[in-house]
C-alpha cells in the first residue's frame, strides 16, 4: 500500500484515545496528518493504529482567561487560528505565524498541537511558543500536567510527551502593551522551509526589562540564547544596542549544516535574524504602543 496497511480508529473522547494509546504500543495520534502521513508514506516510521483526534471537541477550542492569557486546543488548525477574532485581538502574532505556514491546503488541516508534537526543527510554532513562554497542557490517564514550552521540545522529533499522553491544549500568557514580539525567518523562496529563524519577546519600559530570544533551525530544537537576552536587558534598545547584543551569538554555537546552508553561514545568519526579530519586537512596542 501507499501507506503500509494500518488500523484506523476515531475515539469519542480524549480519555478513550488515551486508553487506546495505553493498550497498544504501536498506536499513534493523528491530528492534521500533514506530517505524520508523509512520514508513513516515506516509510521512515511505522504505526499499527492511527488514533484520529482531529475532530475531538475537547481539543478544539480557543478561550481567553481573565488574566488575558488564552488557551488553544491542540487540534485547532492554522486556518482557524488565522480566522479567530479572539486570537487576532489578543495574540496577533499567533495568527500571523499560522497564516504563513506553507499553503492553504496545509493550513486547512495542520494543527497547532501537531506542529509542536512533531518537533521538527523547521516547524513554525515551536520558536514562537518558547518566546511567548507558553505552557503545554498534557493529559494522561493519571490526569493533567503542565510543561513550559521551553522544556517541551527535547530533540529532533522528540518532545516531553510520554507514551499514553496527549497534548490537550496550549496556554499562552497575555501580551501587555509594554511587550512586543518579533518573528523573522530567512528562507529559500517564498514558501519554503526556513534556513534560520528567530522569535523574540521583549518587555520594554524605556529600557529592556526582560527579553527572550529564541533561535530555530540552528539545532534540532528551538533554543533561547541567554547571553543575548542578558546583553539586551537594561539597554535602551537602540538599533546599535540590539546589534551589539546579537553579536554575542558566537563561536560556542555549532549550527547544523545541510543543503540550504553551512554551519558557519547559519551562525552568522542567526545573528542577523535574532537582531531583526528583536528590532521588530521593539518597534512594535514603540511604534504602535504595544503589540499583541
Amino acid at each position: 500500500m501507499l501507506l503500509k496497511s494500518v488500523e484506523y480508529v476515531r475515539p469519542d473522547s480524549v480519555a478513550q484515545a488515551i486508553e487506546i494509546l495505553n493498550s497498544n504500543e504501536g498506536a499513534a495520534l493523528l491530528a492534521g496528518g500533514q506530517s505524520l502521513v508523509n512520514i508513513l508514506k516515506h516509510r521512515v516510521a511505522s504505526v499499527d493504529v492511527l488514533v484520529d483526534i482531529a475532530t475531538l471537541e475537547e481539543l478544539r477550542f480557543v478561550e481567553s482567561r481573565p488574566d488575558g492569557s488564552i488557551e488553544i486546543g491542540a487540534c485547532i488548525t492554522y486556518d482557524e487560528l488565522d480566522h479567530s477574532e479572539l486570537i487576532h485581538s489578543s495574540h496577533e502574532m499567533i495568527a500571523w505565524v499560522a497564516s504563513h505556514i506553507e499553503d492553504q491546503q496545509i493550513r486547512n488541516r495542520g494543527t497547532i498541537g501537531g506542529n509542536c508534537c512533531l518537533s521538527d526543527p523547521t516547524n513554525n510554532f515551536p520558536p514562537l511558543l518558547v518566546a511567548m513562554d507558553a505552557t503545554m497542557n498534557i493529559q494522561s490517564s493519571s490526569g493533567m500536567r503542565q510543561v513550559r514550552a521551553e522544556e517541551f521540545f527535547k530533540g529532533y522529533l522528540m518532545t516531553a510527551i510520554q507514551p499514553g499522553e496527549i497534548l490537550k491544549s496550549i496556554t499562552v500568557p497575555p501580551v501587555p502593551a509594554d511587550v512586543g514580539i518579533g518573528y523573522v525567518s530567512l528562507s529559500v523562496g517564498e514558501d519554503s522551509k526556513a534556513i534560520v529563524r528567530s522569535s523574540a519577546w521583549v518587555k520594554l519600559n524605556g529600557v529592556v526589562q526582560e527579553a527572550r530570544v529564541v533561535l530555530a533551525r540552528v539545532s534540532p530544537i528551538p533554543v533561547r540564547y541567554q547571553p543575548m537576552e542578558e546583553a539586551l536587558r537594561g539597554s535602551s534598545a537602540t538599533p546599535e544596542d540590539i546589534a551589539r547584543a546579537a553579536s554575542v551569538i558566537g563561536s560556542d554555537f555549532e549550527p547544523v549544516a545541510d543543503s540550504h546552508g553551512s554551519s558557519e553561514y547559519r551562525r552568522e545568519m542567526a545573528r542577523v535574524v535574532a537582531k531583526r526579530a528583536v528590532l521588530e519586537a521593539v518597534e512594535k512596542v514603540r511604534g504602535e504602543g504595544g503589540s499583541k
Partner: peptide, 27 residues
C-alpha cells in the same frame, strides 16, 4: 533557488521538493 548537488558519496542532496525549491508564482 534550484540546484542538484551530490555529496562526495554520490547521494543527491535534493531528492524531494522539500530540498529542491521550485520557483513558483510566489517567487
Amino acid at each position: 533557488y534550484e540546484s542538484f548537488d551530490y555529496d562526495e558519496d554520490g547521494q543527491l542532496m535534493q531528492p524531494s521538493f522539500y530540498e529542491y525549491h521550485v520557483g513558483t508564482a510566489l517567487d
